[in-house]
Amino acid sequence: MRLINNEYLTMLSRLLIGGMLIYASFYKIIEPASFAKSIWYYHLVPGYLINLMALILPWLELLCGVGLILGILYDGSRLWSALMMVVFIIALASTIYRGIDIDCGCFKASQGATKSAWSALIFDLVAMLFIMQLMLSKSRRWLLCPK
């Protein structure tokens, strides 16, 4: 528990996950149609919800990323980060299970090979470890708005 509550490790997790979320949100905000196409290839979301998801999700990523790094709306940021990561992991795992040959669309829009879905899944599982540390950590040091 001492390691989980370590304030330096917590800050590192905030920077890593926050930076990753901000970086991941950029292309999706700039090119929502490309991101919508990436979502379509998963065949998990009803057609009428694809654009809605392609519009809102990147902004949620951006706000969570900024929230984690600066420590604003910190509890909400780490909770939404965890929820999004669970959804990403389930979506990626399901495409691999169903043998759908797609690129994850995590950081850029392209249709590559299944290998990238595997590497994205491993990447997300590692990121989930850091998010779990954030969820469990009681450290509230270096938050701009600790309350």
Partner: peptide, 26 residues
């Protein structure tokens, strides 16, 4: 945060040259 994301995304989408329909026709 979800509400803020929705408001921001709709506003930026309405102003962006790369904007898309909110409800897709897929």
């Amino acid at each position: 945060m979800l509400l803020a994301s929705a408001v921001l995304s709709f506003a930026v989408n309405a102003l962006s040259p790369n904007g898309i329909d909110v409800i897709g026709k897929y």
